[in-house]
């Protein structure tokens, strides 16, 4: 499961060309907020051409589309023939999801999406959004949410605790990814605090708005040695007993715990050489 979702502006050739070397597990090519209105067509065309010719390998690729017409239809039409893992739908609400689904139905398509939760309204229908059929993850969009609510963010994240918790619980209840909001400065100490806030709550990953944020996020979401040791012991005992239910250190282990341990070891192996700081 991806740890780092790196935003790449869809209108900067050098960033697109190098998007796959920054060691993010997922890319979000942005056609929305990073692109000025008069550059929307150019960015869409560049992104489509780039993905046709040089679709990055070994990384999940999403495109943040524009939610409003006529840009929504133009974006969706351009992306339809491309090999991407899904779109990121800005300002996701239940009604925008239904519109998205209706558009997909016209073409008998099933392109998944990650819902960007960044309006106060969305928090009142979060569980329904999370359980919507095409939704594979939720991203907390704290910047737009701050603008809408008057919230002031700091690196301690107390002001976000409720929103983070609610989004996380909805995502976990629906069995989809919970992805934390980006931190908007490059200063490492505050980034680290913000990452830890998300990691402690149980988020699966976090967005990055600059490639230099990727190593810190990758490091933080890489399992700790203690987590790896425990997972190895669970899997070993499972293999020895050929059972999904057994006792380890006086505690009962059952199927979800075994599967979680396996997933953790698999992701650790996959990301071992994409850890943050060269270690």
């Amino acid at each position: 499961m991806a740890r780092t979702y790196l935003f790449i502006p869809g209108n900067v050739p050098r960033m697109l060309q190098n998007a796959d070397v920054f060691e993010a597990d997922a890319l979000i090519i942005d056609l929305e907020d990073a692109i000025a209105t008069y550059e929307k067509d150019e960015a869409r065309e560049l992104t489509a051409q780039f993905l046709r010719a040089h679709r990055p390998q070994g990384v999940e690729v999403y495109v943040r589309i524009n939610a409003e017409e006529p840009l929504f239809s133009k974006d969706m039409k351009a992306l339809a023939p491309l090999e991407i893992d899904g779109v990121v739908l800005p300002k996701t609400t239940l009604s925008s999801l239904k519109a998205y689904e209706a558009y997909q139905d016209q073409f008998d398509a099933k392109l998944p999406l990650i819902g960007l939760i960044e309006t106060p309204e969305a928090f009142f229908e979060l569980l329904q959004i999370a359980k919507f059929s095409l939704v594979k993850g939720l991203i907390l969009g704290a910047e737009d949410l701050s603008a809408a609510t008057g919230m002031h963010r700091d690196e301690n994240g107390q002001e976000l605790l409720f929103c983070r918790s609610k989004l996380l619980l909805a995502a976990k209840a629906a069995g989809i990814r919970a992805i934390d909001t980006p931190w908007t400065t490059l200063e490492e100490a505050s980034l680290s605090l913000d990452i830890q806030s998300a990691k402690r709550l149980g988020f699966d990953g976090k967005c990055a708005i600059h490639p230099n944020q990727v190593p810190s996020i990758n490091d933080a979401f890489f399992p700790t040695e203690e987590e790896l040791r425990k997972a190895r012991r669970i899997v070993k005992r499972h293999e020895e007993t050929n059972s999904m239910r057994f006792s380890l250190d006086g505690k009962m282990v059952d199927k979800p715990v075994v599967e979680k341990a396996k997933a953790l070891l698999e992701s650790a192996e996959a990301y071992r050489f994409k850890r943050g700081k060269g270690q």
Partner: peptide, 18 residues
Amino acid sequence: TKDPLGLKIAREALRLLQ
């Protein structure tokens, strides 16, 4: 360097040395 490509190369060099 603050260039993300330069930092990527530096990380890769340290991985190789390890």
